[in-house]
Simulated scan of single mutants.
Amino acid sequence: MAQAEARVERKVIETKTYTLELSDAEARTLAVILGKVAGSPTASPRKHAESVHNALKRAGVQWFDTPLSRLAAGVIAFDEGEA
């Protein structure tokens, strides 16, 4: 006679997170820098930069159309690959 047994294994996944407190000027500066990151939005570390950039936008950080955004030149480019 056939027998079957089901097993459930539970694994604990630890996730390390960080909280960063910034002044308005620091947040706007970081948003400008993150807005200059180039590379694949899915297959390079740009995805992490974009995630932080979007969080700053959701928090209401205003960086566009400011003298600060016009001071930034060039880009930071990531090749594909995991960070």
Rank of each mutant, 00 (worst) to 15 (best):
G74H: 01
T42G: 03
P67E: 02
Q3V: 08
L68D: 02
F78T: 03
E26C: 03
P67A: 08
R28E: 09
E80A: 11
L71C: 11
L68H: 01
V8S: 02
E21H: 10
V12S: 08
A25C: 03
L71S: 07
V61M: 09
R46F: 06
E80R: 07
G60L: 01
H53P: 04
V75F: 10
R46Y: 03
P45N: 15
G74E: 00
A6F: 14
H53L: 10
A38I: 03
L56T: 07
R7A: 12
L71G: 03
A72P: 00
L20Y: 10
K57L: 15
K36A: 09
K47P: 00
D24C: 01
Q62W: 08
V32S: 05
A2W: 14
S44Y: 01
R58W: 14
G60K: 04
E9L: 13
L22S: 06
L34W: 06
R46A: 15
S40M: 10
M1V: 13
I33N: 07
A38Y: 02
I33K: 07
L22Q: 05
A38W: 01
L71Q: 13
R46Q: 06
R70C: 08
R7Q: 05
E26H: 07
K36E: 02
G39V: 10
R10A: 08
A49D: 06
G74I: 12
A27E: 06
V75K: 06
E5A: 15
S23T: 15
T29H: 14
N54Q: 10
L30W: 15
S40I: 10
V75R: 05
R46L: 12
A27K: 09
D65W: 04
I76A: 10
S44R: 02
V32K: 09
R10G: 04
G60W: 12
G39P: 03
Q62T: 03
G35P: 01
F64P: 03
H53N: 13
I33V: 15
L68Y: 01
D65Q: 11
R46E: 04
E9R: 11
G60I: 05
E21K: 11
A49W: 02
T19V: 15
Y18E: 11
N54H: 09
L68E: 00
G35H: 15
L56G: 05
V32G: 03
D79W: 00
T66E: 05
E26R: 05
L20P: 13
T29C: 09
A73D: 04
A59C: 02
V32Q: 02
K11W: 11
E14I: 12
W63T: 03
A4F: 12
A55G: 14
A4I: 13
E82N: 10
Q3L: 08
A38E: 05
G74K: 00
A72F: 11
R70P: 05
K16I: 14
Q3H: 04
E14L: 14
T42P: 00
S23A: 07
M1A: 15
A6Y: 09
A49I: 04
D24M: 04
G39C: 09
P67L: 09
Y18W: 12
V8Q: 00
G81Q: 08
P45V: 07
A83G: 14
A25D: 11
A4W: 13
K57F: 12
A83P: 08
E5G: 11
A55R: 14
V37W: 00
E5V: 13
N54C: 00
M1I: 12
Y18T: 10
F78L: 06
E14S: 10
Y18Q: 12
I33P: 04
G35L: 12
V61D: 04
N54A: 08
F64S: 13
V37K: 02
A43S: 13
